[in-house]
Amino acid sequence: MKKLKGDSNPYFDYRDVKTLQRYLDGYGHIEPIAKTGLTAKQQRQLAVAVKRARHLALLPFVAS
């Protein structure tokens, strides 16, 4: 997977599924920091947003 570096100031919103999906693999797992190329702070925000989106059934816990 290509590193997703170069995003200008990404902010992770649990309602914005399209953006979040770019940081998930085919199984619905959050990609590690080495692959996302995010800062530690951004990666934490991403994790929280993905978990909230999963709770609202906007994203799968496990993709089929």
Binding site: R15, R54, L56, A57, L58, L59, P60, F61
Partner: peptide, 17 residues
């Protein structure tokens, strides 16, 4: 909206913010 997984046997839900 279509749900990523079933909730109470429902495939869809109305999202209200």
């Amino acid at each position: 909206k279509h749900l990523a997984y079933r909730l109470d046997g429902q495939d869809y839900a109305v999202f209200y913010y």
